[in-house]
């Protein structure tokens, strides 16, 4: 049952190697969709190109469904997944500043 590292099924060094592999997938997906291009990223903020939300929200929905069904099927325990605590004001204000940076840098 996953997460494999949390259940001690694989050792931490294996996850480092697998990290490289997941990064590779991540990079290929982003670049292939056009998100290696700063102009294309910034274009969402001028309503010229909707690649950013298309990729981002399709990815999120895929992952939500995956997490949900893998948990139901007993393949991955969603209670063992780590995510950060919610800090409402820092995330709200910080998110806005992040948005300034995103359209300024095209990152």
């Amino acid at each position: 049952m996953g997460p494999l590292l949390e259940y001690g099924i694989i050792n931490p060094w294996t996850t480092v190697a697998i990290g490289l592999f997941s990064g590779l997938f991540f990079g290929v997906a982003l670049e292939s969709a056009g998100l290696g291009n700063a102009k294309k990223i910034a274009a969402i903020f001028y309503l010229k190109d909707f690649t950013v939300p298309k990729v981002m929200f399709t990815g999120i929905v895929t992952a939500i469904l995956g997490v949900y069904y893998l948990d139901i099927l007993g393949i991955m325990d969603m209670g063992r997944l780590s995510f950060s605590a919610t800090l409402l004001w820092p995330f709200l204000i910080g998110g806005i500043i992040f948005g300034f940076g995103m359209v300024t840098a095209g990152l």
Binding site: G2, L4, I10, F25, A63, I75
Partner: peptide
Amino acid sequence: PYIMGVFLGLALLFTYYISG
């Protein structure tokens, strides 16, 4: 972009499965 989005989601799911 939609296909790449699914691909991205699967990469995230895979990472979650491996490391949490």
